[in-house]
Simulated scan of single mutants.
Amino acid sequence: MDFMKPETVLDLNNIRQALVRMEDTIVFDLIERSQFYSSPSVYERNKFNIPDFDGSFLDWALLQMEKAHSQIRRYEAPDEIPFFPNQILKPILPSINYPKILAKYAADINVNDDIKKFYVNEIVPQISCKDGEQQENLGSVSTQDIECLQAISRRIHFGKFVAESKYQNDKGLYIKLIQKGDIAGIEASITNSAVEQKIIERLVIKGQSYGVDPSLRYSQNPQSKIQPEIIAKVYKDWIIPLTKKVEIDYLLRRLEDEDEDEIAKYQ
């Protein structure tokens, strides 16, 4: 997949391979986060006295990271969506003139607030090794949280490329569904239950493989770092549904960026 070559990005085989690689990143990031306590103070609004900032310590740390990453062009890439899009900085490196891949409104499709909410409220309590605080690890916790959030965000927002690929492969179907505002029809067209089940099964296997010391794998007490079923649940309950939301939101607006003559072909 080469973002300078749109045809490679919209190839569904390339998209599937990219999504599988993202699974590995997310699994490893969740495993890394699981070594720390739940650390609720990291997520409490204005718990720490941070000058000229209203939010949690995680929000502040994430904003600083995004400011730095924006200066090295991270958010010029079509597959990266910031959590603080209105506060990132201009790149120091020369801009890259990426060819058009997605519709002109693609950056407006941003569910990062939802991602951060379910991550803090649902995922952190389930994967943390213990409840409570470790004052010496608050910085490490926030750093690892950022890794998790960025990986999950990229995976979910990759749904835009899935949606665009499916639209290009069957314009007739999608133009009719979009014109009718048929959300149920769009959701049915993008849903493959068999593939989703394979993803869940694969994640359980990856959790078992990556989360256990190889020397203990065949012992009676393998001591998994994180329960594989939790990783599968993260995908089933949050990542897959939010990815579908991104795809549907993207497709519902797709005719905003379509030539009228092209639409007329399918009337």
Rank of each mutant, 00 (worst) to 15 (best):
S215V: 14
D2E: 11
P222Y: 06
Q126C: 03
E260C: 05
L19R: 13
E229A: 08
K160I: 05
N46I: 14
R253P: 04
L19F: 08
Q126G: 06
A151Y: 06
L30A: 04
V141Y: 07
S209K: 13
N112F: 05
N121G: 09
K171R: 15
E229H: 08
G181F: 11
N192I: 06
K5P: 03
E32D: 13
S189P: 08
I31Q: 04
K236A: 11
F48W: 12
Y218A: 10
K236W: 02
F3S: 01
R154S: 03
G159N: 05
T8C: 04
M1H: 07
V20Y: 07
Y250W: 08
S193V: 15
I175E: 01
S219N: 10
G185I: 01
V212C: 12
E122W: 00
P82S: 08
Q135M: 15
F53S: 09
C129F: 03
I26W: 01
I231D: 03
D113T: 12
Y37I: 03
D261C: 02
C129D: 02
Q168I: 12
S39R: 07
N137Y: 14
E201C: 00
E229P: 00
Q35W: 11
L203Q: 05
Q220K: 14
C129I: 14
S215T: 15
C148I: 08
I239E: 01
R254V: 00
S189H: 05
S140A: 12
L30H: 04
P40W: 04
P125G: 04
E32C: 03
G181P: 13
E201Y: 01
A184T: 14
D52N: 14
D249P: 06
L58K: 08
Q179T: 11
M22K: 15
M65W: 12
N13F: 10
K116H: 09
A188R: 11
S189K: 08
